[in-house]
Simulated assay, not measured.
Amino acid sequence: MSRRRGVEKFLYHYDKDADLRQKFAADPRAVQVDFGLSDEERDALERRDVVQLHMWGLHALLVRNFAGFLKIDYVSLFREAGIAD
């Protein structure tokens, strides 16, 4: 696991827990408290910055699933950032 364990833990639970997804939609900062995230990590999640999550080396399936739940076209964003073919 990457050095950003808290973010990966959050993304894992976000993928598995519909209640967490609803709470995140209502108040992103409040649900992140239990995951020990830095300000930078919290900001990236609040911005739904899947490019940054990818650049940090987080597990690709966790990033993909996070983007999917939020209906983010992550492939287009990766291309714009120059990190996809």
Score class of each variant (00 low, 15 high):
R48S: 04
F66A: 11
F78V: 05
M55H: 10
F35E: 13
E46V: 07
E41T: 06
D49K: 03
R79K: 15
A67S: 12
V63L: 06
F78P: 12
E41L: 01
F66W: 03
V31Q: 05
D43A: 13
Q52D: 01
F69C: 05
G36K: 13
W56D: 05
G36M: 09
Y74N: 03
L45V: 01
R47V: 03
F66M: 02
L58W: 00
W56N: 00
V33A: 03
S76R: 14
L77T: 01
D73T: 11
R48Q: 05
M55P: 01
E46M: 07
D39R: 03
D39F: 15
H54T: 06
D49Q: 04
L37H: 14
S76F: 11
P28A: 01
L45H: 09
L62C: 13
A60Y: 00
F66Y: 10
D49P: 12
F69L: 03
V75M: 08
A44D: 12
S76T: 13
R64Q: 12
L58F: 01
R47M: 02
D27M: 02
D27I: 06
Y74C: 03
I72H: 13
P28M: 00
K71A: 15
R47I: 00
N65E: 06
D73K: 12
D39T: 11
V75K: 05
L77D: 04
Y74V: 04
L77R: 09
P28E: 00
L45N: 02
L61E: 12
L62Q: 09
F78G: 14
I72A: 04
V63T: 05
H59E: 06
L77K: 07
N65H: 14
R29E: 08
D43Q: 12
R48E: 04
N65C: 07
E41D: 08
R48L: 03
R64T: 08
H59R: 03
R42Y: 15
V51G: 02
F66E: 06
L70F: 10
I72D: 08
E41M: 02
H59C: 08
A44P: 15
H54E: 12
W56L: 06
D39S: 02
Q32N: 10
V31D: 03
D34N: 08
I72N: 10
S38M: 15
L53T: 09
D43S: 13
D43R: 11
D39A: 04
D49V: 02
D49Y: 01
S38V: 14
Q32D: 09
A67E: 01
F66G: 11
R47T: 01
V51S: 00
S76Y: 09
R48N: 05
V63M: 03
E41N: 10
E40A: 04
D34C: 03
D39I: 07
L77M: 05
F35N: 15
H54S: 10
S38E: 15
D34S: 13
V75L: 07
D49S: 08
L61V: 04
D49M: 01
M55E: 12
V63P: 07
H59I: 00
D34H: 15
M55K: 15
F66T: 02
A30T: 08
L77H: 10
V51Q: 06
V31N: 01
K71V: 11
D43W: 03
L58Q: 11
E40Y: 15
Q52H: 05
G57E: 04
L70Y: 06
R79N: 09
